[in-house]
Amino acid sequence: ILEEAISVVMSGKMSVSKAQSIYGIPHSTLEYKVKERLGTLK
């Protein structure tokens, strides 16, 4: 489920907030994982 949510957000089909409510994943977790994948994590 997490992988799917990350893919959807990264493809631009859904915002982090929308994915959070649909997949039930905490906003901070989703945002962290997306940034980690994009290489923008500081």
Rank of each mutant, 00 (worst) to 15 (best):
K33G: 12
V34H: 05
E4I: 04
E4N: 02
E4W: 00
S15R: 01
K13H: 08
L38G: 13
S7K: 12
V16F: 08
L38S: 12
G12H: 07
H27N: 10
T40M: 12
E36A: 07
K13W: 01
K35N: 11
I22E: 13
S21P: 04
M14S: 05
S17D: 14
T29D: 12
Q20I: 06
G24N: 10
V16P: 09
A5R: 01
I6C: 02
I1N: 14
G39P: 07
Q20F: 02
S21A: 15
P26R: 06
S21C: 09
L2A: 03
M10D: 01
A19N: 01
L38Y: 10
Q20W: 02
S28V: 07
V34P: 03
S21N: 10
I22F: 14
V34E: 05
G24T: 03
V9T: 03
K18L: 06
K18D: 13
L41R: 12
A5S: 03
E36N: 01
Y23E: 07
E31Y: 11
I22K: 11
P26I: 00
K18C: 07
Y32K: 15
E31R: 06
V34I: 13
V8T: 11
K42T: 14
S21I: 09
T40R: 12
V9Q: 00
T29H: 10
M14Y: 06
I25H: 01
L30C: 02
S7N: 13
L30H: 03
G24W: 00
I25W: 00
E4V: 05
L41P: 09
S21T: 11
Q20S: 14
L30A: 04
E3T: 01
K33Q: 11
A19V: 05
V16K: 08
S7V: 06
V9F: 00
G24S: 08
A19C: 06
L2R: 05
E3P: 00
R37S: 07
K13E: 12
M10Y: 02
E36D: 06
E36V: 01
V16G: 04
E31T: 10
K42A: 15
E3F: 03
K18S: 09
S21R: 12
Q20G: 15
S15W: 00
S7E: 12
L38H: 11
T40P: 10
L2W: 07
S11T: 12
T29G: 04
G24R: 07
R37N: 11
E3L: 01
Q20R: 07
S28E: 15
G39K: 09
S21H: 10
V9P: 01
Y23A: 05
G24Y: 01
M14V: 07
L38T: 13
S7P: 00
S21Y: 06
S21F: 08
I22S: 09
Q20A: 15
Y32N: 14
K42Y: 11
V9N: 04
Y32S: 15
Q20N: 09
A5V: 06
S21K: 13
Q20D: 00
M10H: 02
